[in-house]
Lab assay of single mutants.
Amino acid sequence: LHIEINVNGLRIELHNVSEELAERIREILEKVDDREEARRLAEELIK
């Protein structure tokens, strides 16, 4: 499954994740104000 999410102008592509996991990642990242911090957090979440 390939999912693309957009959060605060940051486009993140997720591969091989469930829709539920992608939604949780999006919800978490929406709470982060700083774009660079959101990017770093996204990288950690999808490892």
Rank of each mutant, 00 (worst) to 15 (best):
L1H: 13
L1M: 14
L1V: 13
H2S: 13
H2F: 06
H2G: 09
H2D: 12
H2C: 14
I3R: 03
I3T: 08
I3Q: 06
I3P: 05
I3Y: 10
E4F: 11
E4L: 14
I5G: 02
I5K: 00
I5E: 02
I5M: 10
I5Y: 04
I5A: 02
N6M: 12
N6T: 12
N6H: 13
V7G: 05
V7S: 07
V7W: 11
V7R: 02
V7C: 05
V7H: 07
N8L: 02
N8K: 04
G9C: 01
L10S: 05
L10C: 08
L10G: 03
R11P: 05
R11C: 04
R11E: 06
R11N: 10
R11M: 13
R11Y: 13
I12D: 01
I12K: 00
I12P: 01
I12C: 03
E13N: 07
E13G: 02
E13I: 12
E13H: 07
L14K: 00
L14F: 10
L14V: 08
L14T: 02
L14A: 06
H15I: 12
H15K: 08
H15V: 11
H15C: 11
H15R: 04
H15W: 15
H15A: 07
H15S: 10
H15G: 06
N16G: 14
V17D: 02
V17I: 13
S18P: 12
S18W: 05
S18T: 15
S18N: 09
S18L: 04
S18H: 06
S18E: 05
S18A: 06
E19C: 10
E19M: 15
E19Y: 15
E19L: 15
E19N: 12
E20G: 07
E20P: 03
E20W: 12
E20D: 12
E20R: 05
L21C: 03
L21S: 04
L21M: 12
A22E: 03
A22M: 12
A22I: 14
A22S: 05
E23I: 11
E23C: 07
E23T: 10
R24L: 11
R24T: 10
R24C: 04
I25M: 04
I25S: 00
I25E: 00
R26T: 06
R26E: 03
R26L: 10
R26K: 14
E27V: 08
E27A: 11
I28Y: 04
I28G: 01
L29M: 10
L29Q: 01
L29K: 00
E30T: 12
E30F: 10
E30M: 14
K31W: 07
K31R: 14
K31S: 14
V32C: 03
V32P: 02
V32W: 08
V32R: 03
V32Q: 06
V32D: 03
D33H: 15
D33L: 15
D34N: 11
D34T: 04
D34E: 03
D34F: 03
D34A: 03
R35Q: 14
R35H: 15
R35C: 06
R35W: 11
E36W: 05
E36G: 06
E36Q: 07
E36R: 04
E36D: 14
E37G: 02
E37Y: 06
E37D: 07
A38L: 12
A38N: 03
A38W: 06
R39C: 06
R39F: 14
R39W: 15
R39I: 15
R39S: 09
R40K: 12
R40F: 06
R40W: 07
L41V: 07
L41W: 06
L41F: 05
A42N: 00
A42L: 15
A42P: 00
A42T: 10
A42V: 15
E43A: 08
E43K: 04
E43R: 04
E44N: 06
E44F: 08
L45K: 00
L45V: 09
L45A: 09
L45Y: 07
I46D: 01
I46L: 14
I46H: 02
I46A: 14
K47S: 14
K47C: 04
